[in-house]
Computed example of a mutant assay.
Amino acid sequence: MRNEKKKSFYQEFEVFSKRTATSPFQHQFCLLAPNEEVAMVMAQENFMRREPVADIWVVNRKHIRTLHPEEKRMLARIDNKDYRTTKGYGYLRKKWRQYEQKMLDEKEILSWGGDKK
């Protein structure tokens, strides 16, 4: 009975921070606290004293929405769009080498004509 009471008393909070005003937020850790105010104080005490921080977010985990398995299926690619990823351009290095070699061969051939002075 006592463990059940502790579970309902404490809430899980996720802590995010950013080092500078222009840097993105990064997840740091999660903590247990009875409410938002205590969670913020705990986050400041445990995190801000260790490194410089420009801002902190403390978010109750129950307010974070995740994708359901049905929704995750929608993220799968329907068609092949490898050309949008950088790995789709791997063949260009080989083509560029072939092009450069062709150019060098043409230059060499033109140089065989020599100057007729």
Rank of each mutant, 00 (worst) to 15 (best):
M1R: 00
R2K: 00
R2A: 01
N3R: 12
E4S: 14
E4Q: 14
K5T: 15
K6W: 10
K6P: 14
K6A: 13
K7V: 05
S8P: 13
F9R: 07
Q11Y: 15
Q11R: 15
E12G: 00
F13L: 03
E14G: 05
F16I: 05
S17P: 06
K18M: 05
K18Q: 05
R19D: 01
R19K: 08
A21D: 02
T22A: 08
S23C: 01
P24S: 06
P24V: 02
P24N: 04
F25E: 07
Q26S: 04
Q26A: 09
H27L: 03
H27N: 09
Q28T: 04
Q28S: 12
F29T: 06
F29H: 03
C30Q: 12
C30M: 12
L31P: 01
L32Y: 13
L32Q: 08
L32C: 07
A33R: 11
P34H: 14
N35G: 07
E36H: 15
E37Q: 07
V38E: 11
M40D: 04
M40H: 11
V41F: 09
V41P: 04
M42F: 12
M42L: 05
M42H: 12
Q44K: 06
E45R: 00
E45W: 00
N46A: 12
F47Q: 02
M48D: 05
M48H: 02
R49L: 06
R50K: 08
E51N: 10
E51F: 05
E51C: 09
V53F: 04
V53A: 09
A54W: 03
I56G: 02
W57F: 09
W57L: 09
V58Q: 04
R61E: 11
K62N: 14
K62R: 13
H63F: 07
I64A: 02
I64D: 03
R65W: 12
T66L: 15
T66R: 15
L67H: 07
L67K: 06
L67R: 05
H68E: 11
H68S: 06
P69L: 14
E70T: 01
E70Y: 03
E70A: 00
E71H: 14
K72I: 13
K72C: 10
K72G: 04
K72Q: 13
L75M: 15
A76F: 11
A76L: 07
R77F: 15
I78H: 11
I78T: 10
D79R: 05
D79C: 01
D79I: 02
N80G: 01
K81W: 03
D82V: 08
Y83F: 11
Y83T: 12
R84A: 13
R84Q: 13
T85I: 06
K87T: 13
G88L: 03
G88N: 10
G88R: 07
G90D: 15
Y91D: 08
L92T: 10
R93W: 00
K95M: 08
K95D: 06
W96N: 15
R97S: 06
Q98R: 05
Y99V: 08
K102I: 14
K102S: 15
K102P: 14
K102T: 14
M103S: 09
M103E: 11
L104R: 03
L104H: 06
L104E: 10
E106S: 09
K107V: 03
E108D: 01
I109S: 02
L110H: 12
L110W: 11
L110E: 06
S111A: 01
G113V: 11
G114M: 01
G114V: 00
D115E: 08
D115A: 02
D115F: 04
D115M: 01
K117H: 08
